[in-house]
Simulated scan of single mutants.
Amino acid sequence: MADILSILRPFVQECNWYVHDLNGSSEIALTELFPEDSKGIRIVTSTEMLIEKVKEVNQFESGVFIAISNDKYIKWDDRELPETEEEEGLQHSSAKIEIRAFDFSYYEIYGTKVELKEMIEQKLLLNLERGI
């Protein structure tokens, strides 16, 4: 996940990350790594910080990570929070990028820019070729 976020970094410089439906395994409790605010929402205020946090997670069983411009106030409806097992596509109209983690090794990435897909594929393939 940290590799994916590193690739996405240019697209999400000025974003907060909203984390939902989080399950996985780590040495540190996920509730400590991703604490909820007073409204029960998990927010990570930079991509760099999110990269550091996900490095602490051994595996994600599930999770939704949504990047939204940090100049927007987002009010979440408790009855309709994003879920990993939702239909394809962005789950919030202000989202720039959404990453869903599934079953310990699978990720889906949704975005608003077409060139994002090609860039991710190219960089991931290049990393695989290098053995990274």
Rank of each mutant, 00 (worst) to 15 (best):
M1V: 11
L5G: 11
L5P: 11
S6D: 08
I7W: 03
I7Y: 04
L8I: 04
R9K: 15
R9Q: 14
P10F: 02
F11M: 09
V12A: 06
N16P: 04
W17F: 15
Y18L: 08
H20L: 10
H20A: 14
G24D: 07
G24C: 06
S25Q: 08
S25Y: 09
E27W: 10
E27F: 12
E27K: 12
I28D: 10
A29Y: 04
L30T: 10
T31F: 07
E32M: 12
E32G: 04
F34I: 04
P35A: 03
P35D: 03
E36Q: 13
D37C: 12
S38K: 13
K39T: 08
G40Q: 09
G40V: 05
R42F: 03
V44I: 11
V44W: 02
S46E: 05
T47Q: 03
T47P: 00
E48S: 15
E48T: 15
M49K: 14
L50A: 04
L50M: 05
I51N: 01
K53G: 00
K53Y: 07
K53E: 01
V54Q: 02
V54N: 02
K55G: 00
V57A: 01
G63K: 03
G63Y: 01
V64F: 00
V64D: 01
F65E: 00
I66V: 10
I68M: 10
S69V: 02
Y73V: 13
W76S: 07
W76A: 05
W76E: 09
D77N: 12
D77T: 01
D77C: 03
D78H: 05
R79W: 02
L81R: 07
P82Q: 08
P82M: 06
E83F: 07
E83W: 04
T84N: 04
T84V: 05
E86V: 10
E86K: 14
E86F: 14
G89D: 11
L90D: 09
Q91Y: 01
Q91N: 06
S93Y: 05
S93H: 06
S93K: 09
A95S: 14
K96L: 14
K96W: 04
I99R: 01
R100P: 00
D103F: 10
D103H: 09
E108Q: 10
I109V: 15
Y110M: 13
K113S: 12
E115W: 01
E115K: 10
E115G: 12
L116A: 05
L116Y: 00
K117V: 15
E118F: 06
I120P: 06
I120L: 15
I120N: 08
E121R: 12
K123E: 15
K123M: 09
L124I: 15
L124Q: 12
L125S: 15
L126A: 15
L126D: 15
L128Q: 15
R130S: 14
R130T: 10
R130A: 15
R130I: 08
G131T: 08
G131S: 11
